[in-house]
């Protein structure tokens, strides 16, 4: 019984440390989360990056690169363009 308490307490302490350190060190840009939620999230890799988060980091640096995402089309693509402020080329 006491083993359960000790294990739980240690897990709490360790996770608390990790959360605090993470919050202190890596301040995530709020836009990164938004861009990632606008991407399809298949982690397909057809854009050339290993997963959607790597792609959204690249979009933050250079927004034109969003066009490389192949599953992004139709309404989702329109939303992404609205978010990035890009006019569709006719």
């Amino acid at each position: 019984m006491i083993g359960i308490f000790i294990l739980t307490a240690l897990a709490f302490v360790l996770s608390f440390v990790l959360v605090v350190v993470d919050a202190r060190l890596n301040k995530v840009d709020g836009r990164l989360r938004e861009i990632e939620s606008l991407l399809p999230g298949y982690n397909c890799g057809s854009c050339g990056f290993s997963w959607c988060r790597a792609m959204s980091e690249e979009i933050l640096k250079n927004k034109d690169i969003y066009i490389k995402c192949r599953p992004l089309r139709g309404k989702a693509k329109k939303e992404m363009e609205d978010y990035l402020g890009i006019e569709e080329v006719k």
Binding site: L10, A11, L14, V17, V21, D22
Partner: peptide
């Protein structure tokens, strides 16, 4: 509660690795 040592140690090691990764 020395029978807990393997579980405990795995927990500590995993969090150390995560901490190092963050740094």
């Amino acid at each position: 509660t020395t029978y807990l040592r393997t579980t405990m140690f795995v927990l500590v090691i995993a969090s150390m690795v995560q901490l190092m990764e963050l740094f």
